[in-house]
């Protein structure tokens, strides 16, 4: 059972998670410079609502949920364009047999980052929460407000989208499946 969160101990209890919040925010809002603003807004919102944290769970999912909600509000206020709908046919096809293995060895992280950011928000956030932040399915469901089954499905689809984007990347790989120079 975590200690009660109050205005007095707020900074002390949340500080160990600030870097994690920033990491999540940076990959949610697609603009590294906006991530600090997002985290600050999230922390202030968390401070105002610190009594809502019941202490039964780790504080990290609660904070990440607030980061996500603030980002969602900002996206909605700014009218950001939603991505194209996903076509499952693209996700289930065979294709490159070994380009993913090469992706794991390439240093072209910038391209990988672009592919990650091109995944629609609701899928990318689940992939980040589970693959990067190492939350459980239940914690990711808490953060996103979606049922656990939906989280699992989104995770698999996110993986499939990333797989397809890596396979289609002709700048990262040449026609023979070798890493481009």
């Amino acid at each position: 059972m975590a200690p009660e969160l109050t205005a007095r101990n707020f900074a002390e209890l949340t500080r160990p998670h600030w870097a994690r919040m920033h990491r999540f925010a940076a990959r949610l809002c697609r603009d590294p410079e906006c991530a600090a603003d997002l985290v600050q807004e999230a922390l202030l919102r968390a401070l105002k609502n610190c009594r809502q944290y019941d202490g039964k769970k780790s504080i990290a999912p609660w904070l990440l949920a607030i980061v996500r909600n603030v980002n969602f509000d900002q996206v909605r206020a700014g009218g950001r364009k939603r991505e194209d709908p996903i076509v499952d046919e693209d996700l289930i096809s065979d294709a490159q047999p070994d380009s993913l293995a090469k992706a794991l060895t390439t240093e072209r992280t910038g391209r990988l980052e672009e592919h990650l950011m091109s995944i629609p928000d609701e899928f990318r956030e689940v992939l980040l929460l589970i693959a990067v932040e190492e939350l459980t399915y239940e914690e990711a469901a808490y953060v996103t407000g979606a049922p656990v089954g939906t989280v699992r499905s989104r995770l698999f689809r996110a993986r499939a989208m990333l797989r397809k984007r890596l396979a289609d990347d002709r700048e990262l790989f040449d026609r023979d499946g070798r890493m481009s120079k």
Binding site: A35, L127, L128, F156, A160, L162, L166
Partner: peptide, 14 residues
């Protein structure tokens, strides 16, 4: 699919 997820873990931390 699993390997695609592993590529994400390799990305540098912002």
């Amino acid at each position: 699919l699993q390997m695609a997820e592993m590529t994400i873990k390799r990305l540098p931390v912002p």
